[in-house]
Amino acid sequence: MSSENLIEINDLNFSYSTRAILKGIHMTMPRGKVIAIMGGSGSGKTTLLRLISGEVKPSSGHVKFSGNIVHELSRDQLFKLRRKMGMLFQFGALFTDLSVFDNVAFQMREHTNLTESMIRDLVLMKLNAVGLRGAHHLMPNELSGGMARRVALARSIALDPMLIMYDEPFTGLDPISLSVIGNLIRRLTDTLGMTSIIVSHDVQKSLEIVDYVYFIADGVIAAEGTPADVLASTAPFVHQFIHGEEDGPVPFHYPAHSYRQDLDLGEVGV
């Protein structure tokens, strides 16, 4: 029984038709921790999130969420399970036809029978947690990018989930908003006792706030460890990724014929 680990991923494989995206992933995510999943674009990070939320089914292996094997659940059970999960999309994905207040209240109205006055109190509490109580009457198109993401964060913690997944939470934010979001993630995780999974490119900010890091490359876990481990790591891939070097295990060039051949210079006499 996994009272410690909220999520256990066991020998997970996933492929789109013949193209293997994930190959034999093992991960454990304990409760109350912030875990980062890093990797280059197209390395299968977002697919991993979709496997955890049960949007897609694995080719083999399984994801276990608080004791349940996600892909074996029926549709109703899966929807029940998803109420314990929150997801923060890259650009917030706020419902543009609802006000900030109604966005946060959305899940409460859909899934609970709370009275309007209780919903009002809860929504204001959630908005207060992200510092936007005063903005509850605004519409999403009146918010800045950072504010929209904070509202989305408030929305995803509306029903006090056990897990929140963040898909690129730092993309396209100014340094101040970026700090605000980063610290919010850490603080909410600690105060609400939930588990957070961050999928990000932003190495510096992520390493500041997370407890554990997984690096994914070519569908396998290339490296893992605490931020301190990772920073000290001498593994070539990790080194390249953290320091953003142009060439290394991840090559600068897309696989191609030889340059000479492509430019039609022939093979003779230079």
Binding site: S53, E55, F79, K80, R82, R83, M85, G86, M87, F89, Q90, F91, A93, L94, F95, T96, D97, F106, Q107, E110, H111
Partner: peptide
């Protein structure tokens, strides 16, 4: 246009993940 934009901005996906069809 409205439903298409909701899809393009991941609002529909977000709704699905909130266990709302």
């Amino acid at each position: 246009a409205e439903i298409g934009l909701m899809k393009a901005t991941e609002q529909l996906a977000a709704m699905g993940l909130m266990a709302v069809d």
